[in-house]
Design a protein around this nucleic acid. Structure first.
Length: 696
DNA sequence: GGCGTTTGTCATATC
DNA sequence: AGGATATGACAAACG
């Protein structure tokens, strides 16, 4: 996240960032709300106070914008919203948004972003605006984008009939190295210029023959573009502010006509020039998916330096990615979801024959093979960067959907003692949730049709609750398991929260081959899983996007805000709360026992000390008694001595039996006859007398 | 296999 | 009143 994190710190941003990082995550499916959030994140500040009409008929008041400095400068989100504006009867046909964007002189955005966005667009491609937008994007890709920026920029201002950007695009010359392709797919062109259409089709269609030409020409261009790509790559690695500077400078260069590469502005030019043509009448079905027929300008790594490895190697938390994507997945309208063309999924799931490394293509729908190729070309070393938890999840879910023995599959969730749902009465909840969220549920995936499964897989795979690519493999083409591995590359280099031991990687990697059933089962009993606590395994199984430690140790406020910030299913929420409750209670129990032990130890210490004190006091008492006795003895002797020296008036000795010594208050001593003594004094004298006698 | 200890968990009390 | 924490009780794991 070196590059984007400062700006993409919120959920929507991270989602898109996830997209950026995961060009291969075709399953990403942006939600309008997220789109809107993203739009708001980067919206021009001049839009403050405006009302944005959403596809669901609701309106969103733009009351606050992101502090993002380059307001309007990253108009990727704006790309999505012309559709919204277009539907706003109160909005100008062209949409103020576009005008705003143009007025701001939209700077370039890194190609990776555009690519990612396009990838998203294709993957999303719902029956509504996104789909239409996809068409627009495809048209852009085919003509303006695929042909080059210059052509786009020239065509846009004129605003003719049809994608003029495509028509006049010199880009074709600049980018034809990858563009040449069979016109197998056509974008509706209101202009209807045949020659221009051919130009367009060059960008749209793609054939193996042309791919060879593409490769040859692209290799020539690659060198010249390499430097530019490196620059762009550096941009992606630089801090945000530096990247922004870089971007702006590129924008200037572009405006000066010294740079000929695709930018967001190209798309905008196309969109603004012929929004009706671009946004309407073009559906996914209109564009024949051709292997490698992705728009050159958009996804070709040689042209726009969309280094796939780098694109997915940002240090982004997989949890974030999963979670955010999950958010998106669950926010989507199930109806729209189910209405998505299944062709996309089939394209995704079908084996790709194009293995060339240049990933040529001009059709957006061709990005699938592109990604497939990219993934295939990734070094096997990347396997060791894969998050094995993902594969564990994949395998688990795959097993679950394959109809394996529930005892083998569900041990994670139903292992003895797993009462997460029980304690909070979430077990039923979970089930209901799963059933209700049919679009994303694993359960439904297990019972639904293969196409549905594919669909769901495609959409939900990114989310924390999504089925896994392996399921795609099993459901649609079991023999095409290489796709499983390829797809798994989406997680390459994602910084996963769950850190696993190298030994686990081996077992995970081994899961690619899907060995025998017994091995699968034993896989779940590997050391890695054994080392995980139950809650950790459960969290992993449910794609909880937080670590157990986080869940437990996070302060209450942070925990609640975290839950509110992320869209989680009831099952996930229940598990998270259970994990937190158990974790807290576990710690509390430990502390309690520690305290109890401390109390016991303290009590033992107290007993010991008290016993010692008692002995000491006893000794002291004994010593005191001895001292007292000695004093009494001495007093007695003194008494006797005093009396022995006393004489009466006739000189006769005074008998102590008849007289006693009595001290007065003034300190004088009197010899008092015992008969005259106060009763109390008399008794005391008698007692002392007896004691002395006894001792004597 | 019995026994004691440790630990996790739940139910309940307490704060 | 409701949530967090503390604690008794129980069971499982382990030596």
């Amino acid at each position: 996240m070196k590059y984007l994190k400062p700006w993409w710190s919120d959920g929507g941003g991270l989602l898109h960032f996830t997209i950026l990082l995961s060009l291969a995550e075709l399953r990403l499916d942006l939600d309008l709300d997220l789109d809107l959030d993203l739009y708001l994140l980067f919206a021009p500040r001049t839009l403050l106070g405006d009302e944005l009409l959403l596809r669901n008929g609701q309106t969103r008041h733009i009351s606050a914008l992101s502090p993002f400095p380059a307001s309007g400068g990253w108009g990727r989100a704006e790309l999505l919203h012309p559709k919204c504006w277009e539907r706003d009867p109160a909005a100008p046909p062209e949409g103020r948004l576009l005008r705003e964007v143009r007025a701001l002189g939209v700077p370039f955005i890194p190609s990776t972003r555009v690519d990612a966005w396009l990838v998203h667009s294709v993957a999303a491609g719902d029956a509504d605006g996104t789909h239409a937008l996809l068409g627009a994007t495809a048209a852009s890709s085919a003509g303006g984008v695929g042909a080059g920026v210059d052509g786009v920029s020239q065509a846009a201002p004129g605003g003719g009939g049809g994608p003029r950007a495509v028509q006049s695009s010199p880009l074709a010359a600049g980018e034809e190295e990858k563009a040449p392709a069979e016109p197998t797919a056509q974008v509706s062109d209101a202009g209807g210029h045949a020659s221009e259409e051919n130009e367009v089709l060059k960008g749209v269609g793609h054939s193996p023959q042309h791919e060879e030409n593409d490769q040859r020409s692209s290799t020539q261009k690659e060198k010249s573009l390499q430097q530019k790509n490196e620059d762009e790559t550096k941009v992606a690695d630089k801090p945000a502010w530096e990247a922004e500077k870089n971007t702006e400078s590129r924008s200037e260069r572009y405006q000066n006509g010294t740079e000929a590469f695709f930018s967001l502005e190209d798309l905008f030019q196309l969109l603004s020039s012929q929004p009706e043509n671009l946004l309407e009448g073009v559906s996914l079905g209109d564009i024949t998916p051709l292997p490698g027929s992705i728009n050159d300008g958009m996804n070709s790594p040689t042209h726009y330096n969309v280094n796939f490895s780098q694109a997915v190697s940002h240090d982004v938390s997989l949890h974030e990615a999963m979670l955010l994507c999950s958010d998106n997945t669950f926010r989507r309208d199930p109806v729209a979801r189910t209405s998505q063309p299944q062709e996309q999924i089939l394209q995704l799931c079908s084996p790709t024959t194009n293995t060339e490394q240049t990933f040529p293509g001009t059709n957006l729908t061709g990005f699938l093979p592109f990604i497939d190729n990219q993934m295939r070309n990734l070094s096997q070393d990347h396997l060791y960067d894969l998050d094995i938890n993902i594969f564990d999840e994949i395998n688990l879910m795959s097993l679950a959907t394959e109809g394996f023995d529930p005892m083998e599959v569900s041990w994670l969730l139903e292992e003895p003692g797993y009462d997460s749902g029980l304690s909070l009465d979430s077990s039923n909840n979970s089930t209901s949730v799963i059933k209700s969220n049919s679009s994303h549920s694993i359960c439904e995936g297990a019972t639904g049709s293969s196409s549905d499964l594919s669909h769901h897989d495609l959409e939900g795979a990114v989310g924390g609750y999504c089925p896994e690519p392996s399921k795609l493999c099993h459901m649609n083409d079991r023999s095409d398991c290489h796709f499983h591995g390829d797809f798994a590359f989406q997680y390459v280099s994602h910084n996963h929260t769950y850190h696993l031991q190298p030994s686990a990687l081996e077992s995970t990697s081994a899961s690619f081959s899907w060995p025998g059933k017994s091995q699968k089962i034993s896989r779940y009993l590997n050391d890695t899983d054994r080392n995980l606590s139950r809650d950790e395994r459960r969290a992993k199984a449910l794609h909880i996007p937080f670590s157990v430690d986080e869940i437990i140790r996070m302060p209450v406020d942070s925990f609640n805000s975290m839950l509110s910030r992320h869209y989680l299913t009831d099952l996930q929420l229940s598990l998270i709360r259970d994990i937190r409750r158990r974790g807290k209670n576990k710690v509390a129990a430990q502390n309690c026992r520690k305290r109890k032990l401390d109390v016991i130890l303290n009590l033992e210490d107290d007993v010991c000390s008290l016993q010692a004190k008692k002995e000491t006091l006893k000794r002291e008492q004994s010593q005191c008694h001895k001292a007292i006795n000695i004093m009494k003895q001495k007093l007695h002797h003194l008494y006797r001595d005093v009396f022995s020296r006393l004489r009466d008036d006739q000189g006769r000795p005074i008998s102590p039996n008849q007289y006693a010594l009595q001290c007065t208050h003034d300190g004088s001593v009197l010899i008092v006859p015992k008969e005259l003594m106060i009763p109390g004094q008399k008794k005391e004298n008698q007692k002392g007398k007896r004691k002395n006698e006894r001792k004597n």
